[in-house]
Design a protein around this nucleic acid. Sequence first.
RNA 1: GCGCCUGUAGCUCAAUUGGAUAGAGCGUCAGCCUCCGGAGCUGAAGGUUGUGCGUUCAAUUCGCACCAGGCGCACCA
Length: 554
Amino acid sequence: MIEQDILKFMDDALSAEKSFSGYYTRDLLVLENPKDPAHGDIAANIAFRLAKPMKKAPNELAKQVSAALGARLVGSGLEGAIDAIEPINGFVNIRLSVKVLRGVLSQISDAGEKFGRSDTRKGDKVQVEFVSANPTGTLSVAHARQAAFGDTLASVLSAAGYEVTREYYINDEGVQITILGQSIYARYRESLGDEYAFPENGYKGEYVKEMAEEFRKEHGDKYKQDTPENLKVFSEWGCDYLLKEIKQELLDFGVKFDVWFSQKALGASGKIEKTLGALGDKGLLYESEGALWFKSTQFGDDKDRVVKKSDGAYTYVTPDIAYHKDKFERGFKKVIDILGPDHHGYINRIKAAVQALGYPADAVNIIIIQLATLYKDGQPVKMSTRAGEYITLREVLDEVGKDAARFFFLMRKASAHLDFDLELAKKQTQENPVFYVQYAHARICSIISASKRPEDRICKADVELLSAPEELNLFKELRQYPVAIRLSAHESDPYRIITYLQGLAACFHKFYEANKVITEDAELTNARLYLISCVRQVLANGLTLLGVSCPVKM
RNA sequence: GCGCCUGUAGCUCAAUUGGAUAGAGCGUCAGCCUCCGGAGCUGAAGGUUGUGCGUUCAAUUCGCACCAGGCGCACCA
């Protein structure tokens, strides 16, 4: 990469410069991309950092640095790559040559769908756990955003070179599952024509009635007696039924998990007891008021937590602590938990447990995904969990389709509330950002097809013919794609890919308005077809990362 | 009461993690099709970045205190 070469060149030059000796060190050298094109392609703020210790004006130093670099440019091997090194406002601005900027095209056509990916972290195992909704109902909008986010974050990390596992933790035993079984059972009795009291905290949704109906069709009145054995059958049947539905919904949303991890299996393996044993051996457990407590305050939690209630049952966190221990024992260096905003209070508990078990606190990264508010006709769509009424993932999918849904859920950073305008997501016009980006892709395909030259026959053309301002802008924009991936992985948030794609699409549309691709000039036509096929490749790479399709026609 | 998140143009949001004149889309107003997809493009108007201190050569970004909104604070899951 040219940035690395320039960094090394500058470091060598500045280290050798006598007037800076004693002041300059490598860590002061930071390169950035100026947003104003008048400031060149790469900028260094080194002069500001040297100003204080050297007691000199920044711009004075910027001039000195520029002169020192300029003097060493010839013979450095970079003389063809750098057009200018100039001090402005205390910054040292470097302008790359058109030749270097154009170089991105061959990088793209050589790497193809791998362009933007990196393998520098090969072997770093990362786990992304997300959705993990209790199988007691279908998935909601909140889960939908978590699903889009988790799946795409996993893709981004994988593009950044990590070895990623997507995992879903199934809460397939415990109080909620018992209540689910009771709820189905009650509806089952109703469908058999019996009077039967519906459980107080039961699941009141319509789907429970449908499930009971289904169950009755399968088994008749065979499970009519309300024995504990029979109720267990309802719990297990219901859990399996809903899990199957959840899996299908996620598949339709383009989300596929590598591992479905069962809490029941975790319990059966004895790992929960083993985990408590491990904590006990470290002296981190104590008994009080008939319950067993974990000294989580030793690791930054606000209060100690009960792990075993006075009635002998585990609390919600206990299996989760064992689960996290199991994650690390499976070799994950980094574990990412994606949770809903109702889990704020949970972060410190898990972090405390992870540390107590001997792993660093930052080995687990807990990301809270804020809620999305759906808007219809300019009005927020009411969400209510009471009486089992809520907007489901399925409804959003049916309403706007997979592409728009995924794109919209990812548009904002996870920590921000998201307004999701259902009308806008459906619109096939320029106002709709997902169509704006897809349109650019389709438009390129259309031009290539009109050129009567199949894409696989478009080869490296005479790129020196490409020098229009809009073409230079495209080179610069294309160069930023790997940066967008790197930042996105670093911040653990894919929204930046969306921002990037919107920018690239805009750059392309501007190019299109100003320059005709297919002309009488065969050489220029070739060169421009080559350029737009590179743009298409990068748009496709980005959209694929998001799980959004790349239409050839719209 | 305590904790987390958010506050930027009329609306929805950016701003390369502390950089240069805070940028896009929608909406408003004014333009661009004999032409590869007008599902696009060009221009104008629109700002005390919630408020106040502070740190810094430099603050939308970091710290503190307020203000406003959202969400959490169980021997529930």
